[in-house]
Amino acid sequence: MTGLILLIPLALALGLSGLVAFLWAMKSGQFDDLDGAAIRILIDDDAPDA
């Protein structure tokens, strides 16, 4: 039983941190351009500027 006092708040805190991380990611525009994120990895950094 004493374990619960520690574990329940811990579980809730972890879940809550996940929620906060999700809300932050949404606010900062991480989900705005999912298609773009998928193909940006293909941009060659050494390519000469257009």
């Binding site: 773009g36 193909i39 940006r40 990895i41 293909l42 941009i43 060659d44 390519a47 500027d49 257009a50």
Partner: peptide, 12 residues
Amino acid sequence: NCANCIAKLERG
């Protein structure tokens, strides 16, 4: 329509 277009636009 491609990754190259993104790079061209942003850098240019």
